[in-house]
């Protein structure tokens, strides 16, 4: 399917004469764009805000998981998520962009609000499944130490 789609895709891309938007849409649909560079920075900022005590290494691990799951999304959903991801990634590159992003994701905007929710859902599910004693601020080490003390 994949190789066949690529073959068809080449033909289609040539036929449309290099239209940038059409190409972006096509590449997103055909899974040629990996999710990590698109959603990674936003997911990392979101986790850092929600779970400030989660270590950078663990946060990167969680972001990797989130990107892996986004890559596995059904094509249309993935397309939408990557479009939103591109928007937020661009926003984060602008000074003060994170503040605007936080404002936007707090608004009850259809679909836009689903994007941070998806990132959080995947991230939280991963964190508490892998480190169930994590504190609400994301401190895995303190919680595990407490368990160790209790066991001792």
């Amino acid at each position: 399917m994949f190789s066949r789609s690529l073959k068809v895709g080449t033909t289609t891309t040539q036929r449309t004469g290099g239209d940038a938007i059409s190409q972006l849409r096509f590449h997103l649909l055909m899974r040629q764009v990996p999710a990590l560079p698109v959603v990674g920075s936003f997911a990392e900022r979101l986790l850092a805000a929600d779970l400030p005590d989660l270590t950078a290494a663990k946060r990167r691990e969680v972001v990797g998981f989130i990107a892996h799951r986004v890559d596995a999304l059904p094509s249309f959903t993935r397309f939408g998520v990557l479009l939103l991801g591109t928007f937020f990634r661009t926003l984060l590159a602008v000074p003060g962009g994170w503040g605007v992003a936080r404002l936007l994701i707090a608004l009850p905007l259809p679909l836009v609000a689903e994007y941070p929710r998806l990132m959080r859902s995947l991230g939280f599910a991963y964190v508490w499944e892998h480190w169930p004693a994590t504190t609400p601020t994301g401190d895995v080490a303190v919680a595990n130490a407490a368990i160790g003390e209790a066991a001792a």
Binding site: R117, F124, A125, V127, W128, E129
Partner: peptide, 11 residues
């Protein structure tokens, strides 16, 4: 209701 799903329900 594993821990991950509990966290999701509080999200």
């Amino acid at each position: 209701s594993n821990p991950g799903l509990v966290a999701l329900s509080l999200l």
